[in-house]
Simulated scan of single mutants.
Amino acid sequence: MSTRLASLVRDLRSGLDARTGHLRSWDGSRTPLAVTTEGWSVRGAVDAVARAALRATLHNSVRAPMRTELMPTSGGIDGITWYGQHDAHWIAHYDVYARVGLATYPGEAVERLGLWAELARTTGWWWPGEGLCVMAERPTEMHTEPQPNSDHGELRLHRDDGPAVRFADGAAVHVLHGAHVPSWVVTGPTVERIHAERNVEVRRTAIERIGWGVYIDQAGLQLVATADDPGNPGSELHLYDVPRELWGRPVRLLLAVNGSVEPDGRRRRYGLSVPAHFDDPVAAAGWSYGLSPEHYAQLVRRT
Rank of each mutant, 00 (worst) to 15 (best):
D87G: 00
A88V: 00
A53C: 04
V191S: 07
R204G: 01
W40L: 15
I210Y: 06
A120Y: 07
E130Q: 12
Y270E: 06
Y105F: 14
D161R: 15
W127N: 13
H22W: 10
L176A: 01
R55E: 14
L23H: 14
G114L: 02
G259T: 01
R10Q: 12
W126C: 03
A48P: 00
R156V: 08
G265K: 07
E197V: 06
D280L: 04
R266M: 11
D78E: 15
L16W: 06
E236D: 14
R266N: 11
R4K: 08
A120Q: 07
L58Y: 11
A284I: 02
P250H: 05
P189C: 06
T3G: 12
A297C: 01
G114Y: 02
H177I: 04
E137R: 13
V35F: 06
D161F: 05
Q298M: 13
E108K: 10
D169H: 08
E108A: 14
E236Y: 08
G44E: 13
V173K: 03
D17M: 14
G234D: 04
G114R: 01
D280M: 05
Q85L: 10
W125C: 10
L272R: 12
L237C: 01
A64V: 10
A276S: 14
G271A: 10
D169Q: 09
V282A: 06
A103R: 05
A206I: 09
P275T: 02
G231D: 02
S260H: 05
A297M: 01
D87V: 01
A53G: 03
V186D: 05
P230E: 06
E192S: 13
R249Q: 13
R55M: 11
N232Y: 04
A103C: 04
A98G: 09
R30E: 12
R203S: 09
G28M: 04
S150Y: 06
P72V: 00
Q147L: 15
E208A: 12
A56H: 12
Y215R: 12
S74I: 03
I77G: 10
V191N: 07
I91D: 07
P263S: 11
E262D: 14
E201A: 13
L119Y: 08
T57R: 09
T37L: 15
A227Q: 04
G124Q: 02
Y105H: 01
R268D: 06
V257D: 03
W125H: 14
L12S: 05
T68Y: 11
W247R: 12
T20L: 12
V257R: 11
